[in-house]
C-alpha cells in the first residue's frame, strides 16, 4: 500500500502553479471586497486541490486522475471543464453502477459547495484523460487545469501512482 501523500495544493486566482512541497497547506487567497454599505467582505475564489494522483497508462491510452477539492470560502463554485496538455481530450467523468452494469459518463458540472470538500475517488468521480500524448509511468507527474464557473482555473499536478 502506498501511503497517501499530499502532493500539491493550489491557490486559486488564475492559472498559477504553486509548488507547495512537503505537504504544506496553502491558504487560499481571499480578496477583501468592499460592500455597498462600506463594510469589507472576505470571499471570492477559495477552492483548492490536494492529494492529486493519476493512474499509469501507455501513450494513446486512457488514464484517470483523482483528487480532493476543498472550498473554504463562502461562495459555491463549480468545475465546468478540464484542460490537459498531456491528453487529446479531458473531462470530469462519473462512474455509475446500474443493475449490475458499470457505466461512465461525462459530468458537465461538478459543484463544490462553500465550506465543503468534494472527493474525486476510484469508482466515483474522476478526471478522465483520453488519448494520452505521452505515457504516464509511476512517479511521473501530469499537469492539468480545472476550469471553474467563477472564471478561474485551478492548476493541478498529479503524481502517477501504482494502482
Amino acid at each position: 500500500m502506498i501511503p497517501s501523500r499530499k502532493i500539491f495544493a493550489v491557490c486559486a486566482s488564475g492559472f498559477t502553479m504553486v509548488g507547495c512541497g512537503g505537504g504544506a497547506e496553502v491558504a487560499p487567497a481571499a480578496d477583501a471586497r468592499v460592500a455597498d454599505d462600506g463594510s469589507s467582505i472576505e470571499s471570492v475564489v477559495t477552492v483548492s486541490v490536494r492529494d492529486a494522483w493519476a493512474r499509469p497508462a501507455d501513450s494513446g491510452a486512457t488514464s484517470a486522475a483523482y483528487l480532493v477539492l476543498a472550498n473554504r470560502g463562502t461562495t459555491a463554485d463549480t468545475v465546468v471543464g478540464v484542460v490537459a496538455e498531456a491528453a487529446e481530450s479531458a473531462m470530469v467523468h462519473q462512474t455509475m453502477q446500474h443493475e449490475g452494469t458499470m457505466h461512465m459518463s461525462a459530468l458537465p458540472a461538478l459543484p463544490v459547495p462553500a465550506g465543503d470538500e468534494v472527493s474525486l475517488a476510484p469508482l466515483g468521480t474522476h478526471v478522465m484523460l483520453l488519448r494520452l500524448r505521452r505515457p504516464l509511468r509511476v512517479g511521473d507527474t501530469v499537469a492539468f487545469g480545472l476550469l471553474l464557473a467563477s472564471g478561474d482555473t485551478l492548476a493541478v499536478s498529479a503524481v502517477t501512482r501504482a494502482p
Partner: peptide, 13 residues
C-alpha cells in the same frame, strides 16, 4: 475493457 481507467484498474488492483 482496456480503455477503462476507473473501475477495471480498481478491481484488478
Amino acid at each position: 475493457y482496456t480503455h477503462c481507467p476507473d473501475v477495471c484498474p480498481t478491481t484488478l488492483a
